[in-house]
């Protein structure tokens, strides 16, 4: 394949990484933005989403789309509920103190990971995509006969991969609408801006925290369910999303949702492209370097607002 078409395929892979990363990182970002909680266990909620999706689809016979649809709805709800329980019995008990919160979520990370290892096992397990038609993609050429469209061999994607990107866009738009146009969004933003005054004006901050922590985890799980037909479920699969989400949240400006999405696109696309042309490890190294530079030169993130 020529360089052009090759780059096109790599960008598509990058777009899928970006789409899933945007969902996962926005989950981490709202938890940090509203609750000021650095959730080190966020990647494990992602992993649980994939593992529960595998479990649900393996229970439901019939067309793969049936099991997948159930998983797409049920897995985020189950993971969100589990996160609400973790919030109530761990984070709430230690009063959301920053240092103890980090230690506690590291603890949660290992508990969830090891429990999955003991029950689900060390294998990677596939989930069948609900639909998966290969579609050839066109490329253009300037030949002797001028501009022409060609269908180079190997330049293709699947309907499912395109659907993942579309689904992520829709989910993010819905989330944005909820945050900016609804009463519950107003309550969440008021809590983010001034937790004490929110309480003084009748907002039950503990309930908001439970909701936000559950929602953050559910977003990670949702991203995982979307990607698991491409990637397979594995008990260690939360590590990369955690690292990349942290990178994205820092670059995007801590707690800013639009900044997080932009950064996810930037990091996801370059991660996809560099992984295809070089190695995934190089992609992670470069992303981590970028974070270091952002922290040195623009501590509020590339898209973050300067705090006074």
């Amino acid at each position: 394949m020529d360089f052009g078409p090759h780059l096109f395929v790599a960008s598509l892979e990058g777009a899928i990484t970006a789409a899933v990363l945007a969902l996962t990182a926005v989950g981490l970002s709202i938890v940090f933005g509203i609750m000021r909680v650095v959730n080190v266990a966020h990647g494990e909620f992602f992993m649980l989403g994939a593992v529960i999706a595998w479990w649900i689809t393996s229970l439901i016979a019939g067309h793969p789309a049936l099991g997948f649809t159930v998983a797409l709805i049920a897995a985020p709800i189950i993971v969100g509920a589990l996160a609400v329980i973790c919030n109530r019995f761990v984070l709430h008990k230690i009063n959301y103190e920053p240092e103890r919160t980090i230690v506690a979520t590291i603890g949660l990370l290992y508990v969830i990971q090891q429990t999955t290892l003991m029950t689900f096992g060390p294998e990677a397990r596939p989930v069948e995509a609900p639909f998966n038609k290969r579609i050839a993609l066109p490329w253009f050429e300037f030949g002797e006969s001028g501009f022409a469209l060609t269908w180079p061999w190997g330049l293709s994607t699947t309907t499912y991969k395109l659907a993942v990107i579309a689904a992520a866009v829709v989910i993010l738009l819905v989330l944005w609408t909820v945050m900016t146009r609804t009463k519950i969004g107003l309550i969440m933003r008021a809590t983010q801006l001034d937790q004490e005054m929110a309480q003084a004006y009748g907002i039950a901050v503990n309930k908001v925290y439970a909701l936000v922590f559950g929602l953050g985890a559910a977003l990670a799980a949702l991203g995982a369910v979307l990607v698991v037909p491409i990637q397979q479920a594995h008990y260690l699969m939360g590590d990369d999303p955690l690292l990349l989400s942290f990178i994205v949240v820092i670059i995007g400006g801590l707690g800013s949702v639009p900044g997080t999405v932009l950064a996810a696109v930037l990091i996801g696309m370059s991660d996809g492209i560099i992984s295809v042309f070089f190695t995934p490890t190089l992609a992670k190294i470069l992303a981590t370097l970028l974070v270091a530079f952002v922290l040195i030169f623009k501590p509020d993130g590339l898209f973050g607002k300067r705090r006074e």
């Binding site: 801006l193 929110a198 003084a200 039950a204």
Partner: peptide
């Protein structure tokens, strides 16, 4: 009582330094 119940009891607070929800 938890702080968020006070508003419903009929107590309102205008704090020192205003403390509005700045970005709203």
């Amino acid at each position: 009582l938890p702080a968020h119940k006070m508003a419903a009891k009929g107590i309102a607070y205008v704090p020192q330094g205003r403390r509005l929800f700045s970005e709203l």
